[in-house]
Design a protein around this nucleic acid. Sequence first.
RNA 1: GGGUAGGUACCCAAGUGGCCAAAGGGGGCAGACUGUAAAUCUGCUGGCGAAUGCCUUCGGGGGUUCGAAUCCUCCCCUGCCCA
Length: 406
Amino acid sequence: MADIDEAISKLMRGVQECVTEEELRAKLNASQKDARPLRVKLGIDATGPEIHLGFAVPLRKLKDFQDQGHTAVLIVGDFTAMIGDPSGQSKTRPQLTREEVEANVARYERQLFRILDPERTEIRYNSEWSEALGTRGVLELLGKYTVSQILQREDFSNRLDAGDPVFIHELLYPIFQGYDSVAVKADVELGGYDQRLNLIVGRELQRSFDQPAQVIMMMPLLEGLSGGAKMSKSYNNYVGIEEPPSEMFGKLMSIPDDLIEQYFELAACADEAKLRGIRSRLQSGENPRDLKAEMARMVVARYHLEDAAREAEQTFSRVFSEGGVPEEMPEIKVASGTKLVDVIAANDLASSKTDARRLIKQGAVSLDGEKVEDIEHTLFLDSPVVLKVGKRRFAKLLTRDPKIAL
RNA sequence: GGGUAGGUACCCAAGUGGCCAAAGGGGGCAGACUGUAAAUCUGCUGGCGAAUGCCUUCGGGGGUUCGAAUCCUCCCCUGCCCA
């Protein structure tokens, strides 16, 4: 049974909490004996089309299971997305339309398979069984859980205490998510630590449907780029796994120093030895910037190529440390006589012309390194010019009309 | 069903007839400083305009008034208490 021990230690690596390890062992044993892969569930809330580094944490754990021959069962929460997961939320989430959910799901798969093995992956939509429940089925399901069980959740009770509205459909979210486990007969369910109650509901519902309860494994939450809150689309503090290398690198460099270790562990997947090294280097007073760069390089290399990571780093140091410009940037063709503010606003370098004027007034706009002072600045280009707006937004301006006499 | 307190910009929140595009805080953006970060300081933070200016915005619709976030009226929504 030595290989089971090894399997477990691999699977338990980086897990914040597992309920329970003994059950996991039993399931692994049974799986081996009957040559039946475990069904490992992970839910996706398709409220946005992008997978970010935070969600990649449980996804990678799922891959660990796949590597041992088990089946990944991904639940696209197209039904529950219409409720909106209230986990950790301080307010009611907007409900998505069917069309929005479908559009998001379409973009998901390609991203998933950057991490997962498609051969051992099953993707299911929870509308498949949730909608089939019917009113009668829903009532039966709801009869298995009590209000106070659900209200144990801190986010609900906080909102209640604060006098904020909590809608009934929100209370049902954990139950529907738990029912997914019943529907797909999950052996194991993964999730972030904030999913704890939802995962436990799954266990209990399976029991009441006379199924063996799933083992649940919770992964630590990766903090967002500015620290504090967890990485999440709704806080816009995330790095998408499909972002271009230099974008990724830049975002990763902007994290506060005290997240360095966490990012090494959860985003760059450094092993224990590496982490020890990082800790001692931090203590020894090594410039945290260099450690961050190392972390960023590791992360970029994970989702792109090694070369791309190196290149991203070079671009970064050229742009920031040396005040230079990146090698590649979007090109914008402008006709002579166009106002600079129009160019800025029309190309998303600022949110409006008024905003563009504000930026110019603040000295945030330059052309080929020359600060622009005049908010009325009009462009007459005879050669390409590099436009810089703020710290990180660049564009190359080209003439639209081939020859313009001065 | 009755009572009562509310609905203000990205969020919280002040404002109860003109001085309100709307205090303050948070967040965000920009500048300085740095290590690119944090902290700190400064500025900006509805849109269009070069600008005196104009347009849109205080839950929604009507109305009163020279003038409404503020008053009246109807409607919608939320909290709390009672039933």
